[in-house]
Computed example of a mutant assay.
Amino acid sequence: MSTQKHVLQEAGTVEENQLRLDQGKSEEIVEALNADLADTYMLYHQLRKHHWNVEGAEFRDLHIFLGEAAENAEAAADDIAERLQALGGAPVANPVNQAEMATVEFEGDDVYDIRTSLENDLGMYGDVIESLREHIELATDLGDHATAEILREILVQTEEDAHHIEHYLEDDTLVTDAAINR
């Protein structure tokens, strides 16, 4: 293992990019994308937590859905990180820095009932969706149509997952009170 250390790019900096996007515009977009990256990882970790801890009559369906939703968030984070790197930025990768940079708040380590957990997820999804919309507009206004398109694709999947949670939170269920109280 080499002990030589050579920093190629300092965190928080934006280098010139080959995409011919103005340096100032790149810096604005990279800052927005790093916030999206941090938020997406907070969402990912919360979804994974709920995937691990879900119990009850609807365990299997919710366990599968939450696992898939977490995978969707992880894929979105990867797309965001790769785009901001292409723009000359350094993706925020340290979990401590991600938590500090995130505009959403992780619910904590306590385990809650599944309804509370899903309500917390839906709230976080809403915040992530609003931020994605703002950053799509920012990228479009700055002439970075490729970033706007990447964020649009992420937004579609994020909204779809949030909508599924809305369905899970509806009052209608096939599980009867008698089955729950056994």
Rank of each mutant, 00 (worst) to 15 (best):
E119V: 14
I80N: 04
E28C: 13
R152P: 00
D177M: 09
E55R: 15
L87F: 10
E107H: 07
V92N: 02
H164L: 15
L62Q: 13
G67L: 10
N97L: 15
T13M: 07
L84F: 02
F65I: 09
G88K: 03
E15M: 10
V104R: 04
E153K: 09
Q46F: 02
N97K: 13
E27R: 14
L138D: 00
G56P: 01
E149V: 06
S26F: 03
A32G: 06
T176M: 02
V7S: 10
I80E: 03
T40K: 03
G12V: 05
D171Q: 05
N17L: 07
S117I: 01
K5I: 12
A148K: 00
E10Y: 06
E15I: 01
P91Q: 10
L37M: 09
G67F: 09
A11V: 09
T147Y: 01
S2H: 10
I80S: 09
E31H: 02
T140P: 00
R60H: 05
D61Y: 07
T147Q: 03
A32S: 15
L174F: 04
A146C: 04
L21T: 04
N53M: 10
Q23F: 13
D61S: 14
H63C: 08
S2T: 14
L169K: 11
E10W: 03
K49R: 10
A86D: 04
Y112N: 02
I129L: 03
A178E: 14
D109P: 00
D36E: 12
V14I: 02
H145M: 09
L132C: 03
D141C: 09
G143K: 05
G89R: 07
G56I: 01
Q85A: 12
K5W: 05
E74D: 11
T3Q: 01
D61W: 05
E58N: 11
R182Y: 08
T176E: 07
I129T: 08
A70E: 07
V30Y: 02
G143L: 02
N34D: 13
G56D: 00
T13L: 05
E170F: 13
M124R: 14
R182M: 08
I80G: 04
T40N: 07
E28N: 07
E58A: 13
E105M: 10
E105R: 11
L122M: 12
R60Q: 06
T176W: 08
E119H: 12
A77W: 02
A139H: 03
E159V: 04
L37W: 05
D39L: 09
L84Y: 00
E159M: 09
M101S: 08
T40E: 13
D61Q: 14
D78C: 03
R83S: 00
H135K: 14
E15K: 12
A99D: 07
T140Y: 06
A11Q: 11
I64V: 14
L151D: 04
E31N: 14
T147K: 06
A179I: 02
A81E: 04
T3W: 02
A38Q: 10
Y44Q: 10
A75R: 07
N17F: 04
Y112H: 11
E160R: 15
